[in-house]
Design a binder for these strands. Structure first.
Lengths: 124, 124
DNA sequence: GGCTTTGTCAACCATTCGGTTGAGGAAGGA
DNA sequence: TCCTTCCTCAACCGAATGGTTGACAAAGCC
């Protein structure tokens, strides 16, 4: 299993079956059998998927007689959105800055040389 | 490789090395060698990682003499945020609705039975 | 007590994944 | 022309993944 939480969440949601389950659980809690019903796979396979989701912190399971209701822990999704937004914003800022540079340039000057190593004094 | 685009993006970012590369590329374009430098792994391994990112649509590569500058395509990240936000919102609405139900309840009535199959007329 | 339902655990299997080494193509510089 | 640089492709390897079957624990029902 992946060491860091972020990798666990990303790879948990990299499987379409598991994303389906999250979608289903967003509507309400469900038992393993209920979650397994729409799929051709065995209940054991679904149980494994749930373990992956649980290890990622996306899901919690309580105890209720023989049943094990599964509950979605939607907060963990924020981990991902935070990561994503951070780098999307950085990239967007870069575009904006490049745009400014291009606009303020006289004419034939070479624009920001691509492929500069980070050590050379990159865009700050 | 995964069939659907969403799975490709999620699993591309499930690897910490690839997330590092995305973070690096958010600052600016880079060549394969530049991307490989901070890591202990071989250039070939980095090349493989880039192929994964490229297949996910997260990255594009142009040609410039022998060099292949890598460019981040940040738009694809929206695919994920859209998916995530959708189900986080659904889950939040459910909590809000359950909250309303509980608040408007006389007293000893049984609250929304957990583990109801979706066919039974779920919360819409 | 015995049977049924619900779910997990263990073992196995095929495939994928992340890494390696080695070979080689494509382009510029001597 | 030959050499060097940059990068990818192919083959291989060990570990992880997603699936199966089979056994079994735990709780309720007859």
């Amino acid at each position: 299993m992946a060491a860091d939480p972020l990798s666990r969440v990303f790879s948990a949601l990299a499987d379409p079956t598991r994303r389906d389950m999250v979608a289903r659980l967003a509507i309400g809690d469900a038992t393993v059998n209920e979650l397994a019903r729409p799929y051709v796979v065995t209940v054991q396979a679904v149980s494994k998927h749930l373990k992956v989701l649980e290890d990622a912190g996306l899901v919690s399971r309580s105890r209720e007689a023989q049943r094990r209701p599964v509950h979605l822990e939607a907060d963990v999704l924020d981990l991902m959105t935070t990561w994503i937004e951070r780098y999307r914003r950085t990239a967007e800022e870069r575009y904006r800055r490049l745009d400014d540079v291009l606009r303020s340039m006289p004419d034939g000057v070479e624009p920001t040389p691509p492929s500069e190593p980070p050590s050379t004094g990159a865009p700050t």
